[in-house]
Simulated assay, not measured.
Amino acid sequence: MHEGQTMRVPPDSTRKFETFGGESNFDAVFYAGGKISLRFGGINENGRRNGYKSLESGYLERLAAHFSGRLVPPSATGENAESIDQWIRESGIQTRLSSYVCTLLVELGFAKRENDQLRFL
């Protein structure tokens, strides 16, 4: 995909993505009701990824609305600095998902990547 183009995702489909840092990949399952399931980590004996976390419908929209118009890093760079990771933790998810969530925010058109940060639209 090129900058400015957003991905259209058919409901009940699975897509493979590279993490925001580019160090690995993960799968995202997009459901008709808006829920997104992230699958990450190694592959188990059943051919499925070991890590799994669901994002409820509207989760990415709420995150994007919170940071609208701002340039935000994936992880906190100072004691009081806001980050995607901090927002995820404060939303009740303790798993470090920023590398996956940042990729989806860009691919789905909520933000643009500026070096190692996200510029929210």
Rank of each mutant, 00 (worst) to 15 (best):
L97R: 02
R119P: 01
R62L: 10
T103Y: 05
G33S: 10
N115A: 13
Y59C: 02
S83M: 05
P11Q: 07
S68W: 03
G69H: 06
E114R: 15
G69Y: 08
L55R: 07
F120Y: 10
K35R: 13
D85E: 15
E82H: 14
G47L: 01
R39N: 12
R8Q: 15
K112P: 00
D27I: 05
E79A: 14
S24A: 14
G33D: 13
F40H: 07
A28Y: 10
S68N: 08
V101A: 05
S57C: 04
L108S: 04
G4R: 14
N50R: 07
S54A: 12
L60R: 00
D27H: 14
T6H: 15
S37H: 10
G58S: 05
S75Y: 15
S91C: 04
K35T: 07
S99E: 10
G58W: 00
V9P: 07
F20G: 04
I36T: 10
G51I: 02
T95H: 11
Q94R: 15
K35D: 07
S91K: 12
E82P: 14
T95I: 12
G92R: 11
D12P: 02
G78C: 07
F17E: 12
G33P: 03
F20R: 04
S98N: 13
W87N: 04
K53S: 03
Y59V: 03
S91R: 11
S83A: 15
A65N: 11
I43C: 02
G21V: 02
V106M: 04
Y59K: 08
V101P: 05
K53R: 14
R15M: 13
F20L: 06
D85C: 11
F67R: 07
E79L: 15
S75R: 14
G4K: 14
G92E: 06
E23I: 05
F67C: 05
F30S: 02
K112E: 15
A111I: 06
W87S: 08
P73L: 08
G41I: 02
D12A: 04
E56K: 12
A76H: 07
G33I: 09
R119S: 11
E18M: 13
S54K: 10
N115K: 12
A64L: 13
Y100W: 03
T19M: 01
D85Y: 08
L60G: 01
R70D: 09
L63F: 02
S13A: 09
C102L: 06
G58P: 01
D27C: 06
P73E: 04
E61H: 06
E3V: 14
Q117F: 08
T19L: 00
E114Y: 10
C102S: 14
D85W: 03
S54Y: 08
G4E: 12
D116E: 09
K16V: 11
N50I: 06
F110W: 09
R113C: 00
G22A: 05
V9Q: 10
